[in-house]
Amino acid sequence: MKTQKLELVCPAGTPAALRAAVDAGADTVYCGFRDATNARNFPGLNFSRDELASGIDYAKAHGAQVLVALNTYPEAGNPAPWHQAVEDAADLGAHALIMADIGLLAYAAEKRPDTRRHLSVQASASNPAAINYYQETFDVKRVVLPRVLTVPEIKALNQEIDVETEVFVFGGLCVMAEGRCSLSSYATGQSPNINGVCSPASHVRYEDKGNKMVSKLGDFTINQFSQSEAAGYPTLCKGRFVTQDKASYLFEDPTSLNAAEFLPDLMEAGVTALKIEGRQRGKAYIAQVVAAFRKAADAAANNQPIPPLGLENITEGQRETTGAYNKRWQ
């Protein structure tokens, strides 16, 4: 089965970014509230209730939809902020809620059955039995696939499930199974699952050591750069470490995912939606990436070759990878 048109799902960390994404051709925009209920709980980012309301209005007026990410794991003894977020997002007219926690899915399915439920990548559902479980138990309509599957695996998966699939095509790449990684909390005490942050800026330090710049996360050195190198953000799994007396980017090189070349294959594999990562990125970035992928997705839908994306200025200094979509990545 071949999808006729690929839905473009775009990130927004602020109302300005939401408008930029919609203007650039996003079919849907995903965003989160300004608290620990979502996995991009970065300082100064995200939406108040009022901002979400106007954002949804803006999107709808332009034929787009808004998805609300509630994809952290509610704190034991303190479910209220997450439950309230489900209620508010549903009241404000969110097209769907993106969730990972089983308890929160159960709550949403029971209390707000009419608002669509999507399974977040943070649930890391990587096989048909797991995906079917979420569909049968919580009536999930779409699953965001973990960034660990190859294209043939995605195709095989789509033949065994009855829900829509959404896959990441551009942006920062998690190399660990999402929602199952405590590396950040091991070094900083702050985790994606609990606090909605990974390698948080509050624990980042740069030390200028004259001949080199050292980036640290908590007490640990994540990388170092010579004077001529640009100093990267110390995301733990993109750091340089030593094993067997060799320094290397053991987990992942500081690359950024770009799966544009796979769009026809992903369509062929039965994927419904393409997701762009980056709610923490600026609106200029979002406008440019969304516009490029709009063109690419439309070309794929019309069986035309994928045009050059022209995103070199954005990925400058960073290598690109097609990630797990290519088996060699493993």
Partner: peptide
């Protein structure tokens, strides 16, 4: 024009 991820890249 300099976004969050790139903020720290510039020396």
């Amino acid at each position: 024009k300099i976004d969050g991820d790139a903020l720290f890249f510039s020396r």
